[in-house]
Design a protein around this nucleic acid. Structure first.
Lengths: 129, 129
DNA sequence: CTTTCACTTGACGTTAACGTAAACGTCAAT
DNA sequence: ATTGACGTTTACGTTAACGTCAAGTGAAAG
């Protein structure tokens, strides 16, 4: 096996994922990433890139960083743990519920407003007739 | 017209809407509410209740307080302003877009995970056969 | 050798939406 | 007069997710 050892600087990751270096260091403080070091410098591996991808995906799903941390812990592709996988799925389902509720609320509000608009326009017509 | 002048104490509103009194005072600081005073005491009117209802609805839609403030300003039922109404509807539509995007992301993630689970289970079956 | 570049570790600042005292006023009931 | 319920202002504290310096290191390049 060739240990090709591809690694990336903090600047690389920053560019590739559209986040600041501050963000990457912050994620490390929180224990979400732990790149190797070459002296002082951080060296990010492919695995680190995957973790970062997961973190950012978590954010897009509407999770906090702490929640993302939990999720990633569960996501561990090594331990083929079925129970953990179910737990993960459940977490996502909960989030799905929350998002759906928001969507319902938005749709309701929108329906109300459009109804309102319809009536307003009609009122104008009446005035103009 | 009977000016029945129904009014509520801060405690009343707190109870009725499930928010703390601190929250109500905070909303006032931010200019989202401005109840009358009876000496020092705050007296909330029916109109104030409506405003509060709108604020909380805004939160459920996923808006910040500042955004809610904007929305409520537009919502003004007095000025039958059609353009303003359209603007309001547009704002909500934008939010709808954001929420829908989140939902898409969640569904994607969920699909992935379920696929994963399906495969894991199959792998187990293979082992057990 | 000095400049420059990329990177490092502090550490304080910021926004949002309140929480949490502290200290004081008021009015009714005991 | 004291207690208790309810209310008031002032003001510092908290969490999240970074932003924004400041000061220093290490290595390469001129």
């Amino acid at each position: 096996m060739s240990v090709s050892a591809v690694s990336y600087s903090i600047r690389d990751l920053s560019r590739d994922f559209g986040v600041t270096t501050r963000t990457l260091r912050f994620y490390e403080e929180k224990g979400l990433l732990e790149p190797q070091r070459q002296g002082h410098r951080r060296l990010y591996s492919a695995a680190d890139r995957v973790r970062l991808k997961l973190i950012l995906r978590g954010k897009r799903l509407g999770f906090s960083l702490d929640e993302s941390a939990e999720l990633i812990a569960m996501y561990d592709p090594e331990s083929n743990n079925a129970a953990q996988l179910r737990a993960l799925i459940d977490k996502i389902r909960e989030q799905q519920g929350r998002v759906e509720e928001q969507q319902r609320q938005v749709q309701l509000m929108l329906a109300d407003l459009q109804d309102w608009e319809r009536r307003s326009v009609q009122a104008l017509h009446v005035l103009n007739d």
